[in-house]
C-alpha cells in the first residue's frame, strides 16, 4: 500500500471549492451536484436539455481536473490498487450500487446531507462503514494491498 501525506490545508481548500461548485449549480439551474446522477444522465440516447447540461458539467469537471493537475502534480502522485480485476469488480459495484442507492459521495455525502435528507444521511453512514470494513478485511485480514 502507498503511504500518503496528510494534507489538511489542501483538503480544506479543495473542500471549499467542491462546496462552492455545489452551491453554484443549485443557485443557477436548481440541480443537485451528484456525480452519480450526472454521469447516469449521459448514458442515454435522448440528447435533450437534461443530457446537455450534464455533458457541460462533465466537460467542466475534466478541464478543471486537467488544469489544476498541471500545477499540483496530481497526475504523478496518483496511485491505484495493484490488481486490475479488483478495479473491475470495484467499478461494477460502484456503478450498480450508486444507481440503486441513487447517489454517491457528492450527491448523498455533500448535497444530500446539506439539505438534511434522511435518506442521504443514512446512505452516507452505510457506504462509509461498509468501505471501512472492506479496507480492514482486505488489508489487515486478507493481507493484500
Amino acid at each position: 500500500m502507498t503511504i500518503t501525506e496528510f494534507t489538511p490545508y489542501a483538503g480544506v481548500l479543495g473542500g471549499a471549492l467542491i462546496g462552492l461548485a455545489a452551491v453554484i449549480l443549485m443557485a443557477t439551474v436548481g440541480r443537485i451536484m451528484g456525480a452519480t446522477g450526472i454521469f447516469r444522465g449521459l448514458l442515454t440516447t435522448n440528447f435533450d436539455e437534461a443530457f446537455r447540461w450534464r455533458l457541460v458539467f462533465i466537460v467542466g469537471l475534466l478541464i478543471g481536473t486537467a488544469w489544476t493537475g498541471l500545477f499540483t502534480g496530481a497526475a504523478h502522485s496518483i496511485s491505484f490498487v495493484s490488481n486490475n480485476y479488483i478495479i473491475v469488480i470495484g467499478g461494477l459495484l460502484v456503478g450498480a450500487g450508486t444507481t440503486l442507492g441513487n447517489g454517491c459521495t457528492s450527491g448523498h455525502g455533500i448535497c444530500g446531507i446539506s439539505r438534511f435528507s434522511k435518506r442521504s444521511v443514512l446512505a452516507t453512514c452505510v457506504f462509509m462503514v461498509v468501505a471501512i470494513i472492506t479496507v480492514f478485511i482486505v488489508r489487515h485480514i486478507l493481507g493484500i494491498s
Binding site: 500500500m1 502507498t2 500518503t4 494534507t7 489542501a10 483538503g11 481548500l13 479543495g14 473542500g15 471549499a16 471549492l17 467542491i18 462546496g19 462552492l20 461548485a21 455545489a22 453554484i24 449549480l25 443557477t28 439551474v29 451536484m33 447540461w53 457541460v56 458539467f57 462533465i58 466537460v59 467542466g60 469537471l61 475534466l62 478541464i63 478543471g64 481536473t65 486537467a66 488544469w67 489544476t68 493537475g69 499540483t72 496530481a74 502522485s77 496518483i78 496511485s79 491505484f80 490498487v81 457528492s106
Partner: peptide, 21 residues
C-alpha cells in the same frame, strides 16, 4: 454549469481526492 464542473474538478484535484490511495 461549466463553472460548477470546473470548480468541482479543481476541488477534487487540489484536495487529492482523485488519488485512490
Amino acid at each position: 454549469v461549466l463553472l460548477s464542473g470546473l470548480l468541482f474538478g479543481a476541488g477534487l484535484t487540489i484536495s487529492g481526492m482523485v488519488n485512490p490511495a
